[in-house]
Amino acid sequence: MSYNPYAYATSEQNGVNDRFSHTPQQQRPMQIPRNTPVNGQGNANMNANVNGSGGGFPFQDPRGSMAFQLGQSAFSNFIGQDNFNQFQETVNKATANAAGSQQISTYFQVSTRYVINKLKLILVPFLNGTKNWQRIMDSGNFLPPRDDVNSPDMYMPIMGLVTYILIWNTQQGLKGSFNPEDLYYKLSSTLAFVCLDLLILKLGLYLLIDSKIPSFSLVELLCYVGYKFVPLILAQLLTNVTMPFNLNILIKFYLFIAFGVFLLRSVKFNLLSRSGAEDDDIHVSISKSTVKKCNYFLFVYGFIWQNVLMWLMG
């Protein structure tokens, strides 16, 4: 009985000794690499200072270089080399995002001739026939809007949006109730309508199209959604004009129908032609039911929903 407590105490002491002996062994290898770079930097500092003393400004160079290296070593010691590498990698990734703006810039490569032809296409889509709605490819990539009238662009939607807001405020001013605050109000409400429209189109295509098939990007859908401002602006201009036989209502109705035709054909032909570029098996298996469903959805979206929305906004 008296020997047992002494045995436990001895074993505990051994454990404590083992832990204590391990800690210095771990610390010593950590310290040696840290000291060596400091010494190297110190030597470099001394050499640089000796060389710099021959120059014209011995006061400024040593302070700047020593302060910079002290800061750098303190920074690396504080954060750690691995974290510093990760930080640099993050900065490089952020810098690489500039390539994304290059993709967005493609949708702004427009010319005057393209804009005129696009306006003609939106207002009179029947003259384009039923074969000329697909985008032109060149070495695996679509041509920019400057060279292909069927390619979507971001210039006309943005200009249409701003023109729509300007004309609405001008009409408010002519009525005698102009307020600069309405500029922001109309901008917010119009952007809300555009986001709702984009959400419906994206959701419909997402539910109908198989995820394997490459579909439109969000920017392209935004382009197609934004084209409705062209008929909306003309309809807005016709609101205050008094014409015989309710001709302004008929013209407005024609504009909305024409935009429905334009939207249906643009999205349908480019959507299915893009899916045709994939394997034949996928295309054959999907074409029967998916094409029919897409046609029905785009018809409902392009004619019924767009007309309702444009009557509300007009």
Binding site: V110, T112, M159, L166, N169, G173, F178, P180
Partner: peptide, 23 residues
């Protein structure tokens, strides 16, 4: 071939200020 395309947003920008002057 894009002078008009650059001029159009500028027209809208200055028109907004003109609205503030007129009304």
């Amino acid at each position: 071939n894009a002078r008009l395309l650059i001029a159009y947003p500028l027209l809208i920008f200055y028109s907004v200020f003109a609205l503030m002057v007129i009304f």
